[in-house]
Design a protein around this nucleic acid. Structure first.
Length: 235
DNA sequence: CCCTGATTCGC
DNA sequence: GCGAATCAGG
């Protein structure tokens, strides 16, 4: 695969849109995560929260070691022979470690306190009783946070096994129905749009707009596609 | 372990 | 210019 203008545009869009390199690589197809990252850097667009970049030395510290990584089977790697140097006359005695904290009171910090502290404000019992089915009844004013917030970082098969009987399958394609693919090939619910085609085109009116917009002049492109589009493939 | 992005360097 | 290999933090 080569980096065509289209693919580069997609890369930029997704990269700046916050997609991970892996997701972009899958969306583009035919390229690895490394390829995406490498290309992104070559394009100048870098940055973005990197797990290994949080280092920000304010006052000069350490890290003057550039690290001359030389892997590959290029050099036979002579492996320097360590001269015996000075004999074992007087080995520098290891600094005796000073244990600043020889002992630590663990009673108050570990596990369940033997005696519940009578906290006036949060002393309400959390579990009033156990209802049928095993669910825990809660007292008023002790409701838990409604919904677990965090949305999944990676998109998952979202559609377990919906009824695809009504979806347009590959065998049902004809000159009269929109051939726009919905989802990704290989996924259980992969199907085609199936709407009436825009006469003269293989797609319906709506998807003609999607299918041919990429052909518009550079400046005239519209950026509508509501990401995450169909979502990355999940394998 | 998994994930992430950054970097290097042979091609 | 490309990207696998590698590094390194979360």
């Amino acid at each position: 695969m080569s980096w065509t203008d289209e693919r580069i545009a997609t890369l930029k869009k997704l990269w700046e849109g916050g997609s991970t390199a892996s997701q972009i690589a899958e969306e583009l197809g035919g390229v690895s995560r490394n390829a995406v990252i490498g290309k992104a850097h070559r394009l100048g667009l870098k940055s973005r929260p990197s797990p290994v970049k949080a280092n920000d030395n304010k006052g000069e510290k350490k890290k003057p070691a550039p690290k001359p990584v030389v892997k590959k089977a290029t050099a036979p790697k002579p492996e320097a022979i360590k001269p015996p140097e000075a004999g074992p006359v007087s080995a520098p005695a290891p600094e005796p470690e000073q244990h600043e904290e020889p002992s630590r009171p663990k009673a108050a910090e570990s596990g369940i306190p033997s005696q519940p502290l009578p906290n006036p404000s949060t002393n309400l019992p959390k579990i009033v009783s156990v209802g049928p089915g095993g669910f825990l009844r809660q007292g008023p004013g002790d409701q838990q946070a409604p919904i677990p917030p965090a949305p999944p970082r990676r998109l998952v098969p979202a559609k377990p096994s919906a009824d695809i009987a009504s979806k347009t399958s590959l065998l049902e394609l004809s000159d009269k129905v929109c051939r726009w693919p919905m989802g990704h090939p290989g996924e259980p619910d992969f199907h085609f749009c199936g709407q009436d085609v825009n006469p003269g085109f293989p797609y319906c009116v709506e998807h003609c707009g999607r299918a041919f917009q990429a052909q518009l002049p550079r400046g005239a492109r519209r950026p509508p596609p509501p990401l995450p589009f169909g979502g990355p493939r999940v394998r």
